[in-house]
Computed example of a mutant assay.
Amino acid sequence: MKSVYKTGVINHIKSSRYILFNLFLVLLIFCLIVVIGKVDIYPDGLMIGILGVILVLVVDAPAVFLHISYYIKNFGLKIIIDERQNTLIVSKLWKRASLSFF
């Protein structure tokens, strides 16, 4: 049985779903405060919303940095595991490494 794993944009978006969820939650809370409270958006209120988004980004900054650096470093990486032949093949762009295991 041959299994193929690739890195791609969709995989990184799926793995960063918690970061995106936190950002969405802050924006949703800000919108609910405006809609439910029927508050007009003044520069002060807008600054509070922007500070909330910045706070989420600062808290999640290490995770964002790791996702971006991992994506840049491993762009185009493909791993093939063949259990029948007991081999592991790692290929990136034009380089290819093959390992055999028992």
Rank of each mutant, 00 (worst) to 15 (best):
V56Q: 04
L25N: 07
I81M: 06
M47E: 10
V34Y: 07
V35Q: 12
S16W: 02
N11L: 13
V56R: 04
Y70G: 06
L88C: 06
F75D: 06
I54C: 00
Y70F: 08
D82L: 09
I33A: 15
V64Q: 06
S91M: 10
G8E: 11
L23C: 02
S15K: 12
L51G: 01
S3L: 09
T87V: 02
G37F: 05
K6L: 09
G49H: 04
Y42R: 08
I89Y: 02
S91N: 08
L51I: 01
K6M: 10
L88Y: 03
L28Y: 14
L23P: 02
L55M: 04
K14M: 15
F30C: 08
L51Y: 02
I50W: 04
E83T: 06
G76I: 08
K73I: 03
S3R: 14
L77K: 12
N86W: 00
A97R: 14
I48Y: 02
V35S: 11
I36V: 14
I50D: 00
R17T: 13
V4K: 11
Y70I: 02
I72R: 10
F30L: 08
V59T: 11
D44Y: 13
S91H: 01
F75E: 05
I41E: 13
S15V: 11
L27P: 04
K78N: 09
W94V: 03
L51W: 00
N74T: 05
C31N: 10
S15G: 12
L88E: 05
V90S: 04
P62N: 13
I89Q: 06
I72W: 09
I36N: 12
V64D: 02
F24R: 12
L20S: 11
P43G: 10
K95N: 04
I80A: 05
I89M: 05
G52Y: 00
Y42N: 10
V9S: 09
I36S: 10
F24I: 12
K6N: 12
V64E: 03
L99F: 14
W94R: 03
I50N: 03
V56P: 06
P43E: 12
G45Y: 07
L27E: 05
M47V: 07
F30E: 07
D60H: 03
A97P: 01
V64F: 08
L99R: 11
V56G: 04
N11G: 14
